[in-house]
Design a protein around this nucleic acid. Sequence first.
DNA 1: CTGAAAGCGCTAACAA
DNA 2: TTGTTAGCGCTTTCAG
Lengths: 335, 335
Amino acid sequence: MATMKDICKRAGVSIATVSAVINKSAYVSPALEERVNKAIQELNYRPNAVARSLKKKSTKTIAAIVTDIENPYYPTMIRGMDDVAFNFGFSFILCNTTNDPIRFRNYLDLIVEKQADGLLLANISTEEELAQVEKTGLKYVLLNRKPPAYDKNYVGINNMLTTELSIKHLASLGYRDIAYFSGDLLISTARERWEGFQSGMHQQGLKVDEALVFHGDYTFRSGYESTKKLLTETKQLPEAICAASDLVAFGAVKALRESGIRIPEDIAIMGNDNNPFSENFIVPLSTVDHPKYEMGKMAMELLLEEIESKERKFPKQIVLPPSLVVRDSCGWKSE
Amino acid sequence: MATMKDICKRAGVSIATVSAVINKSAYVSPALEERVNKAIQELNYRPNAVARSLKKKSTKTIAAIVTDIENPYYPTMIRGMDDVAFNFGFSFILCNTTNDPIRFRNYLDLIVEKQADGLLLANISTEEELAQVEKTGLKYVLLNRKPPAYDKNYVGINNMLTTELSIKHLASLGYRDIAYFSGDLLISTARERWEGFQSGMHQQGLKVDEALVFHGDYTFRSGYESTKKLLTETKQLPEAICAASDLVAFGAVKALRESGIRIPEDIAIMGNDNNPFSENFIVPLSTVDHPKYEMGKMAMELLLEEIESKERKFPKQIVLPPSLVVRDSCGWKSE
DNA sequence: CTGAAAGCGCTAACAA
DNA sequence: TTGTTAGCGCTTTCAG
């Protein structure tokens, strides 16, 4: 690899001049600039970012930590991140913890050693995890999930509204007897959706039937099992199921169909998050769309702003709106 | 951030001693080692990897370039890569080109500037792209797709076998009249699957009906449109459709159902690649599983081996076997 | 406007 | 066994 020294020899100028033309950091006479550029071309020279980073104490790289890149929620978020990182000339280290806390710790160490300029975290749920992040001293922003009472930089969606919207939709279709399949309440988004369910029911003048709420997690399996339980425990089918995620709804649909129950004729089902496959699922799933791309994008923008500006910025929480997506799984109002 | 100098002051030793204990690169008396470790603890010191990289001319980072991280084929591959990178203490820069050639170029520049130790590429289809990669001078391995006649480091699957397996399965179920929905033949995997279809038909003593092959790409939309075309152009439905990807199969299923055609009763349909949602699709899709995780894993291993060993290794092509996954979309042999 | 030189944090000879 | 020192490739004063 050619270095700046090679360039200055070849161009017959000093190293400072080379630096000046590369970074446009000072006026250089057209003649010299020409010569330098020519040498750069000829030697196929590319500046060494490692050396520059050492000097400037900035690597222009951001790390993102995610628990499970195979969950289709994340690739879209990641694309949002990557798009803005790319536009800012930053690169982007991806860390997939597979939900392993020790792997999380190790990634954090790796990230400080590599001198990343900032950190994006999509799955921080506890104070302890947050404390570890704080300990790195890095600038960071959380997105999607957050620990209780967290009040620093964050971008997420209005999860409470997701379920309120769902209930409103269900109620408008005439359903009153509504089951809820909750996510894991240790996770902020699941707590918020659960609250939204309750307040939504309240707003619609409906009451929540404890026998009809099942606490599980966001997985397909959880939806499947909750449905099986529902089917055995309760004598009469509810009119509708409100699921905490599309995967949960998928699982429910599978179990329902195994019992010969038709959707939406016998029961309506509402998802949450608008999984890429919902549109073409067995029965196109009515759900609530989350702006995942924007989440990733804005989180990266927020972080980069924070990094590029010298002054300490005031913490900012950005909450994006979800939106109802009506497909077939809840039926249609008979006029 | 504390530096090595801070440590040596605090521990009252020389900087070389500190380096020796951190890297275990030389014997240090237990007493000194103790003192050094204590100082490291107290100052919460972490070595600066960029300084180390500058000196050692190795960054311990690998970049991966992928065209579309939202295609569920890739997250699994990426998990495979990340798992081994993590185990080797490497970190992992993700570059999502969104299929934009100029973005591809820019990523390549970024990657050489950042001094990545190696490069993983999942979507190289042309000589030109390959030439650009070669020009970086980096060690690399291709996976999944490759340019024609490429004979260097590669890991992929036996794509020809995927369609042969499909046809064999279809034939065993008694189908003879089989349509093929191809991917984009500019892509190596699509070419290989297409060849596999032809040779598979041949092996089963079946002949391919030109009127029944549709060239498109790997998308849902392509499957949908090919089916519409099939439905209008041909008077009689084939007995089965062999799709070049699961997404194509999904699109076909959608179009078929819109026309009231039942699967598998009226027509059988076979996917290819085993999308995570195929299992729970409208009709559970029979398909061919690709070992995506292993592909990512082995590609990263191959690359890391290459990097860690000094001698020039002999190029290696690893071809992994696909495997048939029988679900419901092709029906079952009536005893 | 251009060049010389110091130094970012670390490693690895080489000396002691 | 431990310490001194010269760079790695670049940026950035500061003189000229």
